[in-house]
Write a protein that binds this DNA or RNA. Structure first.
Length: 228
DNA sequence: TGCCAGGCCGGGT
DNA sequence: ACCCGGCATGGC
């Protein structure tokens, strides 16, 4: 795969050139094309995956989701009805299964109470949806924004560990930068385009698996070799 | 074998 | 306002 040749920087000199983000998008778009993200066949599957992937490798999340499908549980009503302990066993492969079962229950409760359908829940305006998600125990900013962006098609940019590490390695931010600050950099320096946000976050995850890790110091084919 | 993965919470300082 | 331990399986 493609690793990053950058050496750790860990400090930002000043506000980045706004065109750097457009440039970043163009580089990765040229390299990867349409991302096809988030993996998931339905908004519910996307939302469930967003919770299950918390600090967890996606390969394990896939196993858990496949298991839920196999048992016909990828359904809002079924998830609302199932015993939490049984749900935990079904998602065992994704790790943290007890706490994640509780978090899924919390999410399902939020989505099922006061709404006619998942579509109605996800269809409300971005600020309302995000607030409700953030008030749900077990849903933090990244999970909330992942659901807003990829399940509800709201124009909001998702920040994750890869995003932080890549921007740090390239000297755009320092390690004290907050989630909101990093999100602001993307949203203030890019046009508010849902498809662009979806793809760019996906690209960062694609390369983040291998790129800009301290343990993977060298590879000449990193698409961000000369960025910014 | 040991380290890590697309976080988040709750308690302590 | 930070800092840290806990949560857990499966892949390399």
């Amino acid at each position: 795969m493609s690793f990053c040749t950058k050496t750790p920087q860990g400090k930002k000199s000043s506000a980045p050139d706004p065109s750097a983000f457009v440039h970043l998008y163009r580089i990765l778009k040229d390299r990867f094309g349409p991302s096809g993200w988030w993996p998931g066949e339905s908004p519910l599957e996307v939302a469930v995956g967003a919770v299950l992937t918390q600090n967890t490798a996606w390969i394990n999340v896939e196993k858990a989701i496949d298991n839920l499908k196999k048992h016909g549980m990828l359904d809002l009503g079924k998830l609302a009805a199932i015993d939490q302990g049984e749900l935990a066993q079904l998602i065992r492969a994704s790790g943290y299964y007890n706490i994640k079962a509780r978090r899924l229950k919390n999410l399902v409760s939020a989505a099922a109470s006061g709404y006619d359908s998942l579509e109605a829940f996800l269809g409300q305006d971005l600020n309302s949806l995000r607030e409700i998600l953030l008030q749900t125990n077990g849903i933090g900013k990244e999970t909330a924004d992942s659901i807003c962006c990829y399940a509800a098609d709201k124009t909001i940019f998702v920040v994750d560990a890869y995003t932080k590490r890549i921007l740090m390695r390239h000297g755009i931010i320092d390690n004290s930068s907050t989630y909101d600050q990093i999100q602001g950099l993307f949203q203030q320096n890019l046009p508010p385009d849902l498809g662009l946000y979806k793809d760019l976050h996906a690209y960062l995850v694609f390369i983040g698996k291998d790129c800009c890790r301290p343990s993977n110091p060298r590879c000449g084919t990193c698409p961000l070799h000369s960025w910014p």
